[in-house]
Computed example of a mutant assay.
Amino acid sequence: MASRDVLQELFVTGLKNAHAVEKQALSIMTPQVTRIENYPEVADRLRLHIEETNGQIARLDEILAEFDSSGSALKDMGLSMSGSMAALAHTVAGDEIVKNSFANYAFEHFEIAAYKSLLVMAEDGGFARAMPLLKQSLGEEEAMARWIDEHLPVVTRRYATLYAEGGSAKAKV
């Protein structure tokens, strides 16, 4: 197994990466929620997850502070910009709400994997104080992924119905 110093270096890098990914998540979800019209349950859940994501960023800041570190402004900015571009790309699609659901589902699983990896490093490196905070964030990501999974049939059917009726099937016109 790697030395504690190496694990700490990897752990801090992983925390900075997770911080940037959470900033990216905000840049993806925030524009989505403003465009949702015919899917109020999706908008409500995204608003809740935006609050959770802000909490996750605060928890990552707290853990990083214990290592006399902070999030990487460059990584945060870079991933936030790429998240904004991804959100913008879907706005031109007629099936924006469905594409956003696919992307959000995949993104949640990316975050789940990141937190699981951080938990392994925390355990192996003896960074026990970080574990409850990381587990809380992991639980929130898993809950969001489950919610998307459970609601994808509803969103898909509503999209198809609105499309068939000639109404606005987009998230918002």
Rank of each mutant, 00 (worst) to 15 (best):
F127N: 08
S84C: 00
F110I: 11
K75N: 01
S168M: 10
I112M: 11
N38A: 14
F107Y: 15
M131Y: 00
P40H: 11
E66Y: 14
R129C: 04
S69H: 07
L118Y: 07
E141P: 00
A25L: 14
E66K: 15
D95C: 09
A18E: 11
A73E: 15
P153V: 06
I50H: 02
P153R: 05
S69A: 05
E96F: 13
Q8L: 11
P153W: 03
F11N: 01
T34F: 08
V98Y: 02
A130F: 01
L162H: 01
A143Q: 11
H90S: 10
E165F: 05
D5F: 03
E111P: 01
L119T: 12
W147K: 02
A103G: 07
E62N: 14
A171T: 05
A106N: 04
E22D: 14
M81L: 12
Q8A: 12
V21M: 13
P132W: 04
E140H: 09
L162G: 08
M81P: 03
A130M: 05
P153T: 04
I57M: 12
M1H: 12
N100G: 13
L162K: 03
G126E: 08
E22L: 06
R45A: 13
G139C: 08
A114R: 13
L10D: 06
A2K: 15
I28T: 05
L60S: 09
A160D: 15
A87D: 02
E37P: 04
L46K: 07
V12N: 05
G125M: 04
D124N: 10
A128Y: 05
S72D: 12
A86M: 10
A18S: 11
E41R: 15
I97N: 11
L46M: 06
A128N: 12
Y115W: 09
Y159T: 02
R47S: 14
L64F: 07
L88M: 08
A20F: 02
V173Q: 12
A87Y: 03
S101K: 00
S3D: 13
A58G: 09
A93Y: 09
S3A: 15
S70Q: 14
A18I: 06
A106G: 14
N104E: 00
R4Q: 15
E66T: 15
V173W: 14
L162W: 02
E9P: 01
V33G: 07
H49M: 10
G78S: 09
H49F: 14
L10E: 10
